[in-house]
Design a protein around this nucleic acid. Sequence first.
DNA 1: CGACACCTATTCAAGATTGACTAGTTGATA
DNA 2: TATCAACTAGTCAATCTTGAATAGGTGTCG
Lengths: 176, 176
Amino acid sequence: MTVESLRSAGLERELLLLGLVRRRDRHGYELAEFVHAHLGMFFDLKRATAYHLLGKMEEAGWIVSREEREGRRPTRRVYAITEEGETIFQELLRDSLQDFKPASFPSSVALLFLDALPGSRGSELLERRAEKIRALLSELEADAAHGPHALLDHRIRYLTMELEWLDEVREGLDSP
Amino acid sequence: MTVESLRSAGLERELLLLGLVRRRDRHGYELAEFVHAHLGMFFDLKRATAYHLLGKMEEAGWIVSREEREGRRPTRRVYAITEEGETIFQELLRDSLQDFKPASFPSSVALLFLDALPGSRGSELLERRAEKIRALLSELEADAAHGPHALLDHRIRYLTMELEWLDEVREGLDSP
DNA sequence: CGACACCTATTCAAGATTGACTAGTTGATA
DNA sequence: TATCAACTAGTCAATCTTGAATAGGTGTCG
């Protein structure tokens, strides 16, 4: 993969793994668990996908692996970043920081079909949705008490926005 | 696919296509073009994916197709919703309205690695990101002048939130 | 009317994603 | 010390996604 073709190609998962391997050598399972445990709230990266991505990145020469064994546990494939990987990382990071791709909101598909519901059932259903958002928000606000964190702040703002928007949609439904 | 297994399974694209076919019979190309032209700003559904989904839904019995031909144009596979499809649609719609799955924000991965940049390059790169968001916002605000629209409003709120968040992140970077 | 660009409609193959499976290790407890 | 649950580590097959290819039709401009 060339440096040029990296531009605006959706390589955020690769950036994530590469950046973690860059901090220190890691094996696949460890990486996947780390992302799940510490970043799972923000990013979705399944174990099998992580292995696939690591394989691809090794093939591309961004990282190299060595076999390692601790005690009598199964051998692990431990990855380390290469010089080329470091170059790619810097490239990906710059591109990714200055680029912006809007998120997509599949949950909002349903809003297109509110008119297909009998009576004014919509507002009632959306209230349950709002309740779920409020639950997520209070979890996040508890986490945020443990110190500030840009991603956590982002998520809180996002959920707050969803809630405000929903309120407005429901107002529009209730007073037609 | 059973009605039970529909709950919280990410069937928004199916809901979208099913809902459009429900409004009136449509063929694959037409559906894909409609989504691209009128909803492309909100939902990403590639042509080939639409065909795939329609095939799946037909196999599941939610829709049926007939061959149709207008003039001497290539034959089309025109889909119509079935009774079972109508049931599923109602089910999907209810579930989807009352459920909430937070969106994911791949663009924010890069923020994890701000410390890997030399100097205070970060703020500069993020300013370009902000500029892109502002450009998107002013397009949307022009569209919004043509009358209100819940999805458009959602998107405007979302981008505004991103911008506010970015400002805060950059403040944190500039005064450490 | 011939050539060329663009529109309609779908299929296909390559690649990405993930749930389920395999296979062993460790630790607790009875 | 046998058993069972939970943890570690990775692979695989089924499914999903999509860029590219196919195969025509229509319009227009000289």
